[in-house]
Design a protein around this nucleic acid. Structure first.
Lengths: 234, 234
DNA sequence: GATTGTGAAAGCGTTCACAGCC
DNA sequence: GGCTGTGAACGCTTTCACAATC
């Protein structure tokens, strides 16, 4: 009851950074580094040291004053907090360009998200192989979710098909959805939806590019947001 | 000097939402809808109406009280603000799984980001076709950037190669980078970097899934953050 | 001496609520 | 009557700065 952090609420902004710290810690571990300070971690993560300390303090008091954090122990704690002590099989809906790339992307399996299946509603795609995964019919979705205990679904369909894909995932019992389609998905309460919109990211960059151009032609207002700059010098 | 918004600074959070509004407005336009209220726009975007009004107020006062916003006019204004009045050719570094999917993804061209080229440092990949784009050698990067006036580069390499790819993009003259590799990139001041990390998104979902499971086994603390819930009922 | 953990302050972003305008 | 535009209030996030600890 004293050592577990069960029930502590971690701010969303912190949750979003923990995976970044984790990746860095794993690198450090592989490099044989036993301890790391908040400052080192901050440099590698591109944030400042106070933020790292505050973030990690939500997990518990795992550092040692004057020394820093023990890499292996911190890895274990971050993993536990993120729920990464076991794999989370995922199912992908949509075997187009993006779905295929995601299914073939080794990073998912490597980071604890093996692809339990990929489905499509196009009979022409069903049955084809992507890496060592065979595309199945969307009708098999519930079966895949049940058999592999899938909680997380990935929507990789074209925009117009995305809501139906999400509905089918929810009906199949999935409770978290990662949406790559460029639409806003509706899901019932209790289903967590996150969105990754590739073109939106480019449009955000476009905004700052355009500002830069406007600034060059006019005043000297800085066009690049402070948070996006990063010194190249060590 | 009175009608252009040159110089107004728009909060980053707003900049990130403008592309979403734009997409919805384009849908409305195609559906032949002439006017839209902040409430309608908010529902479709999955945010609240006050936020929509505040966001749009940063662009100027383009609404009409008692009526709403004229769709076509607002599309024009959002486009102008985001710098989407012209295309932004992009260059992709890395012709692996993800790079290929991105190069073949029609959504980029459609939304104003045609793929001017894709390069790789693997001779086995150079020369192959992805859709109608031929993979070129990374040595041609500067030439592609110059010839197509590319400002935005996309890093789609494996993690270990990403920093070198970014350096080459910067050397070639690119001033904005969208990074898909799971590493923190260093770039000189003046170069804007955004990151999309697919596994990180899954890890964030994993956190809330894990909390849900912990909550089910214990108290009733809600595991899904308020901002991620969305009612399914109309 | 070094570095963490954390209150307090400052800065942002969101939401409220209503005056202003059509 | 309906809807926008916005000051003010609120809450979340970041940063500061320093006491506590090794």
């Amino acid at each position: 009851m004293a050592t577990t952090s069960r029930g502590r609420r971690i701010p969303e902004a912190t949750v979003a950074r923990l995976p970044v710290y984790l990746r860095i810690l794993l690198d450090q571990s592989e490099a044989g580094i036993a301890n790391v300070s908040s400052e080192e971690l901050a440099d590698l993560a591109g944030v400042n040291a106070a933020k790292v300390r505050k973030d990690l303090s939500y997990l518990g008091t795992y550092g040692t004053r004057g020394v820093g954090y023990e890499v292996e122990y911190l890895i274990y704690q971050v993993r536990r907090e993120l729920g990464l002590t076991h794999d989370w099989p995922v199912v992908i809906v949509g075997a187009g360009n993006l779905g295929q790339a995601l299914a073939g992307y080794g990073g998912f399996r490597q980071r604890g998200f093996p692809v339990a299946g990929i489905v499509d509603n196009d009979p022409a795609k069903v049955g084809s192989l992507i890496g060592d995964i065979r595309v199945r019919d969307v009708a098999d979705l519930a079966e895949i979710v049940r058999d592999h205990k899938v909680s997380i679904g990935i929507v990789a369909t074209p925009g117009p098909a995305a809501q139906e894909a999400a509905d089918q995932l929810v009906a199949a019992g999935v409770t978290s959805i990662l949406n790559f389609a460029p639409v806003v998905l509706n899901a019932p309460p209790g289903v967590n939806v996150r969105k990754v919109d590739l073109a939106v990211e480019l449009q955000i960059l476009s905004y700052y590019e355009q500002r830069r151009a406007a600034a060059a032609a006019g005043s000297s207002l800085h066009a690049v947001p402070a948070g996006s700059r990063r010194g190249a010098s060590a």
